[in-house]
Design a binder for these strands. Sequence first.
DNA 1: GGCAATCTCGACCAAACGGTCAAGATACAA
DNA 2: TTGTATCTTGACCGTTTGGTCGAGATTGCC
Lengths: 240, 240
Amino acid sequence: MTSSSALPARPPALRATPRGRAKAAIREESEQQILKAAESVFAEQGFKGATTAVIAARAGVPKANLHYYFPTKDDLYRRVIEDVCDSWLSRTGAFSATDDPAVALTRYIYAKMDLSRSRPDGSRVWANEMIRGARVTSDYISDTVRRWLRDREAAIRQWIDSGQIAPVDPRTLMFMIWASTQHFADFASQIRLLNDGTDYTDAAFTRQKRHVAEILLRGVGLSVPDSVDATTGASSAFLP
Amino acid sequence: MTSSSALPARPPALRATPRGRAKAAIREESEQQILKAAESVFAEQGFKGATTAVIAARAGVPKANLHYYFPTKDDLYRRVIEDVCDSWLSRTGAFSATDDPAVALTRYIYAKMDLSRSRPDGSRVWANEMIRGARVTSDYISDTVRRWLRDREAAIRQWIDSGQIAPVDPRTLMFMIWASTQHFADFASQIRLLNDGTDYTDAAFTRQKRHVAEILLRGVGLSVPDSVDATTGASSAFLP
DNA sequence: GGCAATCTCGACCAAACGGTCAAGATACAA
DNA sequence: TTGTATCTTGACCGTTTGGTCGAGATTGCC
């Protein structure tokens, strides 16, 4: 999935793709280094607190070089948000009314938990952007996310109408899944302090994924199916 | 509750209480105006993004006056966080093993939802502080919050042992309650965009409280008792 | 009233910041 | 090889920022 699909309002690139193959590779690598550094600094310091000098230092490039690839701090910030959106859309599968609700919801919850663990800074940048009022992402939310949510709600409503799950407010269910899963990224420092100052091991986090899924699944009248593997988030249902 | 109970590590006030009665009132009023303005600006802009000039302007005082009452921006920030902690401790009741779990959990969820609605900026400042790594609040979390959480977990565990609720991970349950309720403050702009750009009415928010409580209560094998009034968060149980 | 403590506030400052620039280095097509 | 597009980088600049200062206004106690 290309990044342009995530934020439709993205301004066009100021520079065309460089001619040579090596130049293109240099550009790609520099941009990725800067974007990776920017994601962590924006997550730690917020938009205003993040300085281009610190981002450049963390990326291992001079500040002027950062501004060569991303003319303004705002451009860089938008690209970071874009990449997070891309990641969420491409790495979190959707679900539909024809899916088994227990399997579908469990897979979705596991996938969102996995994203919180594998890319916590992305979640934090997103949370920061929401707290600040969704200035950069309002179009994306009003269009892409809203459509995506409408389709999920329709699936949940059909599950309710066919008696497969308990009657819950579909939108509230989705909000609670988002809130509960992203909590483990956004509030990681709080959780760490409450967990004796230690981070989750992989095994503990796998258990945590299951605990979250158990409460949410029971909350809609289901239970977590054994067929969904918590260690990867992948489902073995319908496989031999 | 005094603010000193919230953050034990709070540095002592640099100035003693003023002598006269009018002077003390002036001081109190000025500090409250500045704190109120600071809470909203810190919520909207983050720590670094908030400027003392903007806070002073919103409070209706000259910038030099702000620095007279709060010598540094960091002092002001700590006081804002302190006040939020105070509010959470004093306005959110606790619960214990002898309470009826359905009533106790519902009341707690309603109380936290009410706080998200009545003081969303406080929740956002807290969220920002957690995302930034809990620099100012680490002692408070490690001491006060951890003890508070330990006692709630003990109550939940007793409810489980006595068969009153389903076997869930107590800490995960508390995390999910926090995440789900605070989500309505921290992600208000996202929710607004998904709800056709309109904010919740009071009636809609009351319904929202109930939807959240329904899923969480069913998630531990209970249902929301009719005895708890969602419009205020108060419980009429055990009253005539 | 007199005097000390407290409060108000415009003007000011050093540091930090986002962004620019120009000059040189590198890679590629011809 | 030569010319051009791309990349690299230290030095630089105007603005913004947290914080200071000092002079004047207000209040409270004797």
